[in-house]
Design a protein around this nucleic acid. Structure first.
Length: 135
RNA sequence: CUACAAACCCGAACUAUCGUUCCGUUAUAAACGGGAAGGAAAGUCCGGACAGCACAGAGCAACCUACCGGGUAACUCCCGGAUUCAAAUUUAUUUUUGAAAAGAAAGUGCCACAGAAAAUAACUACUCUUUUAAAAAAGAGCAAAGGUGAAAAUGUGAGGUAAGAGCUCACAGUUACAGCAAGUAAUUGUUGCAACGGGUAAACCUUAGGUGCUGUAAUGCCACAUAUAGAAGCCUUUGAGAACUGCUCGUUCAAUUUCUGAAAAGAAAAGGUUUCAGGGUAGGCAGCAAGAUUGUAACAGUAAUGUUACAACCAGAUAAAUGAUAGUGUAAAAACAGAAUCCGGCUUAUGAGGUUUGUAGCUUU
RNA sequence: CGGGUGGUGGCGCAGCCCGGUAGCGUACUUGUAUGGGGUGCAAGGGGUCGCUGGUUCGAAUCCAGUCCACCCGA
């Protein structure tokens, strides 16, 4: 797979049903300031990896702040997602992920840029253990 | 030029790389071109458009509005005007700003403390009569005096009286009504006549006028899925229930057979309906982006605004799009802040700067 | 998108409808009873009534605006 930096409509986690499944049945871990929910759905998806992004409106009252944080997370994801894509391509599995921002203060992009690779690594490791246990 | 006040404007720009969303073209895993948040998108405080339901209404209740004229699709909005009150300011009711400014002379309630009294009063005092040597007591009259309070029964003078009192008169003040003059009107001026009556309606209320209910997750269509299943109650023309706003009246709609019995009625089944508990779906299309639209100019109008002409098309997502990095540039890139059916207002938040008007001060001519 | 509730000593609440004195429980401080502690008894301190403005002689209370917290419906 080519090293694309895109993050378009197909890659977004959109279905309400799948979202509820991710929160209800999915596993989770946290890499501060993120919390990650993920699941490997059995249903065929139109794109192998679907990612959603969210911020709590209780912590960030203003819509401007929430939009800003979501943009930064998307930016950090699309620049660091290549290892995850390569891994999923090799194992031919599907994945639905939701990234939640749980920090209390407005972040800066460099901070998220350093944390995002850690998150991706941890996600790959978790998936790997899971596959090995199943097979 | 500076300070203050008021009204209004503006809400940064460009280049490169990576990336998002919508539209179009080539074309069909892509490429190219074009569009892509606000003055408040906010609060959801008003008014509409649009959609569904209802359209058989009446009364009551509830809620809203409250000087006059104009503007508008409409308005708790805007413009202009008049009166009163309040605040600031001033030599000056001089100027500016603001006001939920109908009615307290329909009725009810309330007005702490203080004070004789907080509104049909009468404690002290004053006057008269009786008793009495006197002091004083009892009865009657009166509402002038009492200085407390946020507020004290219109103020001053004279007459009048046993003492007093708008009881009477003069002047002044306030208010209601009627006439005349000006004004479209609010209202103003003036004459006559009557009265003097505390405040509070952002206390109840009265008067006048107005309001059908629900909101785009409305609503219509397509696709997929499930349970013709469960519990309790009521009813089937002597009617449960539904609709018409909340209540009442009223109107409209509203579901059957068999058996027993002389009939009334009863039983069974079926059906209807209300409530409860539960199951399924939660995808797509329309609504949804050309409109009370925006810009410029001319004309009408004091203005709000309207009319005409020309030009423009300027977000449309659905876990929800505008960003990141580097550079140019600047004294500093910074404030408040992110569309979700769409418009017109109001309110609130807001950095730096600019424009106009008024007032004051200083400088120059 | 629509609808509703609340904000009063450190904490939990009343008072608001119908305007004039801010109170209750608990906690705190001091004294007392006990050899000491707890318990009890007595006394005391502590509140810009979320904020701003208005109505009124006077506002926690009435009216308007605003901030915060919470809840409900689809």
């Amino acid at each position: 797979m080519s090293a694309s930096f895109s993050y378009n409509k197909q890659e977004k986690l959109k279905s309400r049903k799948l979202l509820e499944q991710v929160f209800a049945e999915g596993k989770s871990f946290s890499v501060f300031p993120f919390k990650v929910f993920y699941i490997s759905p059995a249903v065929e998806l139109d794109f192998p990896i679907k990612i959603g992004v969210g911020v709590s409106s209780k912590i960030f009252k203003k819509a401007v702040d929430r939009n800003y944080i979501k943009r930064l997370i998307r930016e950090a994801y699309r620049l660091n997602k290549t290892p995850l894509h390569n891994y999923m391509h090799e194992h031919k599995k599907q994945l639905a992920v939701f990234i939640l921002y749980i920090g209390k203060e407005l972040p800066q992009l460099p901070q998220l840029q350093t944390k995002m690779p850690l998150l991706i690594d941890k996600l790959i490791n978790a998936l790997h253990e899971n596959f090995v246990a199943n097979t």
